[in-house]
């Protein structure tokens, strides 16, 4: 216990204790800073929540009254089926089946052709929007901004305007889908392009290929499976989207659904919704199967 002590004596233990204390102090300080940040973000979140509640007329009493009303509404759309007259009841429920199937078919066609046209436009724009493929930054910038514009304006807004310009019917809807699809697929295609292997491109260049040849022979063969996969993903989304376009008069089953809801044809609403769910499920499953066969994993980042 003297002042002159080798390692392992109280003095060293003391030093160690100090170090632990200083470490703990720093740890606590860090923790406090972190807590402050969490609190700050939490306060911001609560503030945003309160503001949203105030602006959107949302209230707990409103919710308590509204939810049963919404539930009653949904339950009210289901027809009364009795076991004795099941066949007749079903026939009554789906009385418009032939007409609805025709409209559903039109909806699918709109999704399909909209995806194809949008895909062609996306393919035309995507190379100019890939940073590794263009040296001119003005072209790159223009292509990127164009794609951004095409995908940020909501599909339905395009549909509203196109119905004005091209008249009522599926043609306006298809154009709206195609324009929006070009924007979102173009961005995704460009991202695929940016991830291709550089070596084949150099090979084509070394053999004297010009820019279009480099794209066609260097980039496209590498990117094609991913293009196809994104196209199929978009097809699923577009068939779903096409079902809503009828609301603004742009063709498809949406028109009929809109009329049914507006005129309180309750059982028609549920019948059309069920048909719609069945159709989109079948298309989803089909596309998913093909996609998995094409690239073998899931894609993300498609909005």
């Amino acid at each position: 216990m003297s002042a002159v002590s080798p390692a392992g004596s109280p003095l060293a233990a003391n030093r160690q204790g100090e170090r632990i204390a200083s470490f703990e102090g720093r740890y606590r300080r860090e923790q406090n800073v972190r807590r402050l940040w969490t609190l700050g973000y939490g306060a911001l979140f609560v503030l945003a929540l309160l503001a949203s509640v105030a602006v959107s007329d949302f209230s707990i009493p409103g919710l308590v009254q509204g939810l049963p009303k919404a539930w009653n509404y949904i339950a009210g759309t289901l027809p009364k089926l009795s076991r004795a007259t099941l066949g007749a009841d079903l026939a009554d429920w789906f009385w418009g089946l032939r007409y609805w199937l025709r409209l559903l078919f039109e909806t699918i066609l709109m999704g399909f052709i909209g995806t194809v046209l949008g895909g062609v436009l996306a393919l035309a724009l995507c190379f100019a929007a890939s940073r590794n493929l263009v040296t001119n930054s003005a072209i790159y910038f223009m292509a990127r901004r164009t794609l951004e514009f095409l995908r940020t304006v909501p599909e339905l807004v395009f549909a509203l305007i196109f119905v004005f310009a091209f008249g009522l019917g599926p043609f306006a809807g298809v154009l709206a889908i195609a324009i929006h699809t070009a924007g979102s697929l173009g961005k995704l295609f460009a991202e695929v392009n940016e991830n291709v292997d550089e070596r084949p491109l150099e090979g084509v260049r070394a053999a004297g290929g010009n820019w279009p040849m480099v794209m066609r022979l260097g980039v496209v063969p590498q990117a094609l499976p991913n293009y196809a996969s994104y196209l199929l993903l978009r097809l699923e989304i577009n068939v779903r989207g096409a079902s809503a376009l009828g609301i603004v008069g742009a063709g498809g089953i949406g028109q009929e659904l809109y009329v049914a809801i507006r005129q309180f044809e309750y059982t028609d609403i549920s019948a059309i919704m069920l048909l719609l769910i069945a159709t989109t499920s079948v298309i989803d499953i089909t596309c998913e199967t093909i996609r998995h066969r094409l690239i073998g994993h899931d894609l993300t980042g498609a909005d």
Partner: peptide
Amino acid sequence: DAFRGIDGLVWALIFVSAVGLGPF
């Protein structure tokens, strides 16, 4: 999956019918 098949706008149509016009 079944719920995914319905577009947001269709839900909006239904809820406007059920709870009235407005942001709610």
